[in-house]
């Protein structure tokens, strides 16, 4: 199924994903509504977020049917961002530490 003649998929598939995204959004809203705390909260938020993102990219944006040449070129580079996030987290911890040490009076 090459995208040369356009991405043709049954409408029903989109409707199902649409419904699924509604369910996932409701679930992530309920995480807040029921005030889940700590590790459980973060795990649930991340899981629902990743699932939603996956369905949007894979089905709505048709990445699931694209050739690997395109999929890898687009999906791999954001991996670098994980390094940025890790570095900034370390940096933030350090800033927090210095602030607590020197600014707490």
């Amino acid at each position: 199924m090459d995208s040369a003649d356009g991405q043709q998929h049954p409408i029903g598939l989109y409707l199902k994903v649409w419904a699924l995204l509604f369910v996932l959004s409701t679930l992530s809203y309920l995480v807040d509504y029921f005030n889940f705390e700590g590790l459980l909260r973060w795990t649930l938020i991340i899981v629902f977020m990743v699932l939603k993102a996956g369905f949007i990219i894979g089905i709505f944006m048709h990445m699931a049917w694209e050739r690997l040449a395109l999929a890898y070129a687009i999906l791999m580079p954001p991996g670098c961002l994980l390094i940025l996030i890790a570095l900034m987290a370390i940096e933030a911890n350090y800033t927090f530490l210095t602030r607590s040490t020197f600014f707490s009076g």
Binding site: P78, L84, M88, A92, T95, F96, R99
Partner: peptide
Amino acid sequence: LSDTFIFTCFLTAYMNVRMSTT
């Protein structure tokens, strides 16, 4: 893809200030 980097920079900056504030 380039926009992804921009938004991630914003969200990372947000993470950084949220983690570092006392």
